[in-house]
């Protein structure tokens, strides 16, 4: 209060209280020292760290953005690749099916041809055998006729006997066969 009144009524009690210029000088001096020291030891490092963090975060954001774009690009590439592969696989299956069908056709054709051929040869063989059989039969009929004729000549018989004889021989021939 003393200093306040002293301040307000300057000069009135100047000798007793006055304006404490020393205090003011001390305050100024101390404050400036404090300002400089804090700038060196506190605000400087702290602001550096804040700046560094800011840079770090903006870097991280940039990197994240880049990574995201990369991932997107890669994903679309993979999609493309997958599509292509699927198409290729489809193509391969189609080709295989086609080939199989062709082979099947070939095999069937070959089998059919072979069958035809076998049938043909069998038929020829049968024909040959038939010819042979007919030939043999004809030969036999000829020899039989000769023997019948010789028998007829051997014995002059009545009509009844002759008939009987013929029947006998016919029977004999029938049995002989």
């Amino acid at each position: 209060m003393q200093s306040l009144t002293g301040f307000l009524i300057l000069g009135a009690e100047a000798e007793a209280t006055g304006v404490a210029w020393g205090d003011m000088a001390t305050l100024l001096f101390t404050f400036i020292i404090l300002l400089v020291l804090l700038r060196i030891f506190a605000w400087g490092p702290l602001m550096n760290v804040m700046k560094e963090r800011q840079d770090h975060i903006s870097n991280e954001i940039d990197t994240a953005e880049k990574n995201r774009q990369d991932a997107e690009r890669m994903s679309s590439e993979a999609q493309e690749e997958l599509k292509k592969t699927r198409q290729e696989a489809h193509q391969i299956i189609e080709d295989a099916k086609q080939t199989a069908k062709e082979q099947e056709q070939d095999i069937i054709t070959a089998a059919r041809t072979e069958g035809e051929r076998i049938k043909e040869s069998a038929r020829q063989e049968i024909e040959t055998e038939k010819e042979k059989a007919i030939q043999a039969l004809q030969d036999q009929v000829a020899s039989l006729s000769v023997r019948i004729a010789s028998k007829v000549i051997e014995k002059e018989l009545s009509e009844q006997d002759q008939e009987k004889l013929i029947n006998e021989y016919v029977k004999e021939v029938g049995e002989g066969r």
Binding site: S3, G18, V19, A20, W21, G22, D23, T26, L27
Partner: peptide, 8 residues
Amino acid sequence: WLDFNMSN
């Protein structure tokens, strides 16, 4: 004129 208030 150089006065100091020691509490200050």
